Structures are given as structure tokens and as C-alpha cells.
Amino acid sequence: MKKSQIFYGSPHREEIEKRLKKFLNEQTDFLSARTINSPRAVGDAIENIITENFKTILGDLVGEYSSSFARRAMADLAFTDNDGFYYVVDVKTHRLDTKFNMPNLTSVERLSRFYEEDVNYFTLLKINYKINGTRAEIAKVTFAPIEFFDWQCLTIGALGWGQIQIANANVVKIVPKNSRKKWMLELCDTMFEFYPKEIGKIGERLDHFKKIRKAWEKRIMHDPLQLDFNRH
């Protein structure tokens, strides 16, 4: 099976990371004293710069390019390369002095459907930054498909079918050129452990509300109209 040259061929991935880091650190005046302390505002500003300029960063590696996606879409931008591989890119920003952060990546069900086609790559563009005055200094850029993220740094959140999350955004382990098949099999094994635990939790919650219902069935409620009549 042919694979993406960006991720499995020559060091395009690392070069893209270096170019983007340099480009972002050269940007000036896109933040203010008012917005610099808001991770959401900083993240939105960085994301906007990336979506507007990432096609240029990719250079002749890119064929078609799009950054027009709804807020809840799987990606912030997408492109095809010259070999016909399709990349959806989710931009994640992380302020390094925050102690704990567990960003959602994607739904396990959505990813499993997307990866039915070998030409598709769900790609994360993770931007680590630190604050210096009114500047966001980019410390590290990680550009990699989700299958390069080691399961040691991932977890599953109980939302819908399950949400893949980075367990701690300060600790990310990348396995370059990792096998998608191997990673997807690990995903399946992870879900085989996750779902029975969720079933157990649901059983506990059902038991809890059975007790609540019984308590309410036994409760004697006074008729407010009768109480009002007795006052007179």
C-alpha cells in the first residue's frame, strides 16, 4: 500500500514543522494586552494565521487546499497532496505554563469511518507556546497524523461513542512512521476495555435512580390547595 510521502517519505514533516514555527514567531502585533492572557483568544489568533498561510508553508507539496469548515467540523483546514492523499488538519494550541490540559481530538466512530479509506489522514497540528509580554512565543510545532501519537499519551473520554483525548497536553509522545494498522488495532483493544467499564457505570447509575424513584414513590406530598384552605 502506498503511503504519504509527507509522513513516511523524506523529512517533509519535520521541515514543515520548522517552517511553520519560524513563520509564526515572525508574526507581530496579532495579540494585545487584553487578549494575551486568554488561551482561547490566543488559540483563535494562531489558528487564523495558520489557516490563512498554511498553503504557502506546504509549498509545492499541496494540490487542493481549503480552510472553510464549520466550527464543529473534524478539521480546521484540509488539503490533498500531489499523490492524491487527503489530509484533514485539526489545529490545537497549548500554553505551556498551564498545569493540566486534556484536549479532545476526535470521535472514535468518526475516525474509524474516516480511516476506511487509506488515502485519508487525520492530522494534528499542535502548537506549544509561552507568553512573553504581549507575544506568544512558539516553543514547538508538532505536525503528525493521529497514528503517530503513542497510546501512552492518549485516553478516551466518555462522550458519545468515545472521544480520543490527549491525556496531558504537556506530555506528548510521537512515534514517527508508526503503522496505522498497528495503531488502529490498539484503538480497538482500548475500546474493548473502555466500553465494559462504561456499562458498569451505567448499571450503577440505573441502580442509583431506582433508589431515587422508590424514595419519591414513598414520599407524601401535601396538596398546596388544601394547605391554603386550612390556613383560612
Rank of each mutant, 00 (worst) to 15 (best):
T142Y: 04
I166L: 05
S112Q: 05
K218W: 09
A158T: 06
N132H: 11
T190R: 15
I199S: 15
F122H: 04
K126V: 00
N128Y: 14
L154Y: 01
V171L: 15
D207F: 07
L154Q: 04
W151A: 08
E117Y: 01
Y129P: 00
M221N: 02
D223G: 03
G157L: 06
M191C: 09
E137M: 13
L187G: 05
N120I: 07
E147K: 06
V108C: 01
A136M: 06
R205W: 10
K177D: 01
F149M: 04
V141Q: 03
R180S: 07
H208I: 04
Q163S: 10
K201N: 14
K214N: 14
K177I: 06
R113Q: 11
V171A: 14
F148D: 03
P224K: 00
V141E: 04
T134W: 03
K181Y: 13
K182Q: 12
I138L: 09
V171P: 00
R135W: 09
N170V: 07
K211L: 10
K214M: 13
A136L: 05
T134Y: 07
W216V: 00
P196V: 13
V171D: 15
T155F: 01
I164R: 04
C153R: 04
C153S: 08
A136C: 10
D207G: 08
Y115T: 03
I220W: 11
C188M: 15
K218L: 12
I212R: 12
F114S: 07
T123E: 02
L159P: 00
E204R: 13
E109I: 10
E193F: 11
E117K: 09
P145R: 05
F143Y: 10
